[in-house]
Write a protein that binds this DNA or RNA. Structure first.
Length: 781
DNA sequence: GCTTAGGTTTTG
């Protein structure tokens, strides 16, 4: 029987078990009795990781607690599950699920004396003909083709307990408004920990200690006042007070606590239930919180920092560096300037991870925050450019011996008191969006206000700039993707031109002009074997070759062989041409069109293009006496999607198309152009952008070549000729780098890497330059 | 394998 999933409905509370099955009480369970039409039911209170037995069989052990007879000594029983069922079951079981099993073997339990559980245990497996029914809350994973015959996920009717009615030892669901929290931090044990104190309209507080090996499954709380919904949290008494702690199956949703903000849950699990009724609950809690609790935190801008105090900072990470074993440096900005002198942690520039240009650009607005001890691990893992909220930063007033005035040091001390820690905010967080908007408007001084420099172009064409990219955009920086050369300093063009080749440089220059101005002409075909370059043939050339080859009629003896099926027809227009298509079978069957390779005899480039829209690959061929062969290599030997693939005339030695049959024999042939080229003896030509950039920097001018398959523009050279969208994008990019009609002074500065190399022939020697390892900054495009 | 932390500022 296949897996059957019933729709999850909130109201559904009954599991429709097959009628012939009758409930068996645990106390009637005995070895040797007939349990054929009986089922055992219980709550999963314990389970162990899946292990492998000595013979390789998977093994999974669950402990069930009986539903009735809670006082009975033998109220729990071991369930031993073997084989595939063990794995399937382990994937879906949660603590607290109702577990029902039929078709089990009852065996005397060898561990009954030690564990105090039932005298017998149940053995469950496919071989025993077992059926498992699980009644639990929705889980993301639904096993397919499992022998757990029916799985019913019935969303339990969630009941939420007010905080003044919590009882020791229970597992409850609750709502609360966050009064205090510690963002997830690395505990001293094996897990991440987050401590959250919530309050609800009963005016009772509950502090919850939440653990998880995965920080993402802890509540995504960003500020005091957020509203949380906890499911399956365990309540315990600890030093005279109720305490919440994660139990198996704990899940949370977090909502912005602001009245009127969209009610969008931030989930800690991939699947969750959230219905209209709960929507209303959130709105009500917001209203209650607005008038009953103060949610103003110690948030501050750098401009509003109070010496000696602690504050929460929402900021963007610009740089980071290791300082020593117990401390780590974060360089951040929030667009405002701290009114006091701030310290610089002595770290060598080369040891700071981050974009050098940005670090330099923001040097006056950036502050150093030194984080200690337990925060180091998390700090190390932060991405440059990400948005952070750093909680409870200490603005410490200090003065060095050689200073007359004191300065401010920012420390994130060790420990987690007062919620000290670092949280990463998502890009769509309202505070982040506000910060981004603000960072965009920041005047960076040195007369390089981006508003004035690029106001028209950028505002009209750009999407969403993050602060870090807006810094790039001030100069329209191209920046290197490879970090290997990050420590290269800028070199003046004059110096480069007076130096011997080969060498590599980082330069800052303006693009005075470039060739070709018609961007389509920058695309060439390159043979990596003989290093030759050639123009991309146009459609007329292709049609000419097709016309010439159509003079030879298709040879019927070559139709429908062991590896392809052939179809011939005559066009209905005046020309009455004959077209033959050979559909390649693979794995003995004709596949879906989108996976099919076909060979075509006759037809025009237009007809062939139509076929490429429907079929995966098209190979134009013609008949000889005893074989099908490729056309002249001035024509594409293969068409895939909108891309025409060409072979190098010098380096290719075309082989029989029969060679494709070996690829076709595979069940799922990849039909990769490189592989097809290889079996056909074709040396594949690659599409490449070739351009000449004339760069100037006030000290000199030089021509640097761009030779790029797809990295520089982030556009594959192979696709641009057939995509007006990509052509427009490339044009926009070039207009950014070299805005038409601007005077030299008004051109933007670019940064990129160039390398020099020697070109020699018998009479001549010259040094040339090539751009390398440079891509256009994302937000410029 | 059944802890970690259990709110209430480091001392760099």
């Amino acid at each position: 029987m296949p897996v059957e999933l019933l729709k999850i409905t909130k109201e559904q509370s009954e599991t429709p078990l097959p009628n012939h099955l009758k409930n068996e009480d645990l106390k009637h369970l005995q070895e040797g009795c007939d349990h054929t039409n009986k089922y055992i039911q219980g709550i999963v209170i314990l389970f162990y990781p899946v292990t492998k037995l000595r013979d390789g069989t998977d093994f999974f052990k669950i402990v069930l607690q009986g539903l009735d007879d809670l006082c009975s000594r033998i109220n729990s029983i071991n369930i031993l599950i073997y084989g595939k069922m063990a794995k399937d079951c382990a994937k879906i079981i949660h603590h607290g699920d109702t577990f029902i099993v039929a078709g089990f073997k009852v065996i005397k339990s060898p561990t009954a004396k030690e564990d105090g559980r039932h005298d017998c245990h149940l053995e469950v497996s496919e071989e025993t003909g077992s059926t498992i029914y699980v009644r639990g809350y929705p889980t993301f994973f639904f096993p397919q083709n499992t022998n757990i015959n029916i799985l019913l996920y019935i969303a339990p009717k969630y009941v939420y307990t007010p905080l003044n009615q919590l009882k020791d030892g229970t597992i409850v669901n609750l709502y609360g408004i966050v009064k205090f929290f510690k963002p997830p931090y690395v505990s001293k044990g094996t897990d991440y920990c987050s401590v959250v104190t919530v309050v609800d309209p009963s005016n009772v507080k509950l502090t919850c200690t939440l653990f998880s090996g995965n920080p993402d499954s802890l509540p995504k709380i960003y500020k005091v006042g957020d509203i949380v919904r906890f499911h399956r949290i365990k309540i315990r008494e600890y030093s005279g007070q109720m305490q919440g702690i994660t139990s198996g199956g704990f899940a949370s949703l977090t909502f912005d606590g602001t009245v009127g903000a969209p009610v969008v849950p931030r989930s800690s699990s991939k699947m969750y239930t959230f219905v209209d009724e709960e929507h209303k609950t959130i709105e009500e809690l917001r209203v209650w919180a607005a008038s009953n609790i103060s949610i103003s935190g110690p948030a501050a801008k750098l401009s509003g920092v109070q010496p000696m105090l602690f504050f929460d900072l929402t900021c963007q990470l610009i740089g980071k560096a290791k300082v020593d074993g117990s401390s780590f440096l974060l360089k951040v900005w929030d667009g405002t300037e701290c009114p006091y002198p701030t310290w610089r942690v002595p770290v060598e520039a080369k040891d700071v991870e981050g974009e050098k240009v940005v670090l330099h650009q923001l040097r006056n607005l950036m502050v150093d925050i030194l984080v200690y001890d337990n925060h180091v691990q998390l700090a190390k893992s932060l991405q440059i450019g990400s948005f952070l909220r750093i909680y409870s930063i200490h603005a410490k007033q200090a003065s060095a011996d050689n200073e007359d005035v004191s300065h401010i040091e920012f420390h994130l001390h060790g420990g987690t008191c007062y919620g000290r820690g670092i949280g990463v905010l998502p890009e769509n967080n309202p505070d982040v969006m506000e910060l981004k908007a603000f960072l965009r408007s920041v005047d960076l001084g040195d007369g390089q206000n981006m508003e004035s420099m690029f106001s028209v172009e950028l505002d009209d064409t750009s999407g969403d700039y993050t602060g870090i990219h807006s810094a790039f955009c001030v100069y329209v920086y191209c920046f290197a993707v490879l970090t290997d050369h990050q420590d290269l300093n800028n070199t003046e063009l004059k110096t480069i031109m007076n130096s011997k080749a080969p060498q590599e440089y980082r330069i800052r220059a303006k693009l005075r002009t470039y060739k070709p101005q018609k961007l389509r002409q920058s695309v060439k075909l390159h043979c990596s074997k003989c290093n030759s370059l050639q123009e991309v043939p146009n459609r007329d050339e292709f049609d000419l070759i097709l016309e010439r080859s159509a003079i030879t009629a298709s040879n019927p003896e070559l139709h429908s062989t062991s590896w392809y099926d052939s179809v011939t027809w005559t066009t209905q227009d005046q020309k009455r041409k004959e077209i033959t298509i050979h559909f390649v079978r693979h794995g003995e069957v004709v596949q879906d069109p989108e996976n099919t390779l076909l060979m075509i005899e006759g037809g025009t480039s237009r007809e062939i293009r139509k076929l490429t829209k429907k079929f995966k690959c098209v190979i134009p061929v013609r008949s000889t006496e005893d074989d099908l062969e490729l056309l002249d290599l001035s024509a594409p030997f293969l068409l895939q999607g909108s891309v025409k693939y060409y072979g190098c005339k010098q380096c290719s030695t075309p082989k029989s198309v029969q060679n494709l049959s070996s690829m076709a024999a595979e069940l799922h042939p990849s039909w990769e152009p490189t592989e097809i080229a290889q079996v056909l003896g074709i040396e594949l030509l690659q599409y490449v952008f070739i351009m000449r950039f004339t760069l100037v920097d006030g000290t000199g001018a030089l021509n640097a070549y761009l030779f790029d398959y797809e990295k520089f523009f982030r556009i594959p050279a192979s696709e641009i000729l057939t995509s007006s969208f990509l052509q427009e994008r490339m044009e926009t990019t070039m207009n950014m780098l070299c805005p038409p009609g601007r005077k030299l002074d008004d051109l933007p500065w670019l940064e990129c890497f160039i390398k020099s190399y020697n070109v020699r022939d018998e009479t001549n020697h010259r040094v040339c330059y090539q751009i390398f390892d440079t891509i256009i900054a994302e937000d410029v495009v």
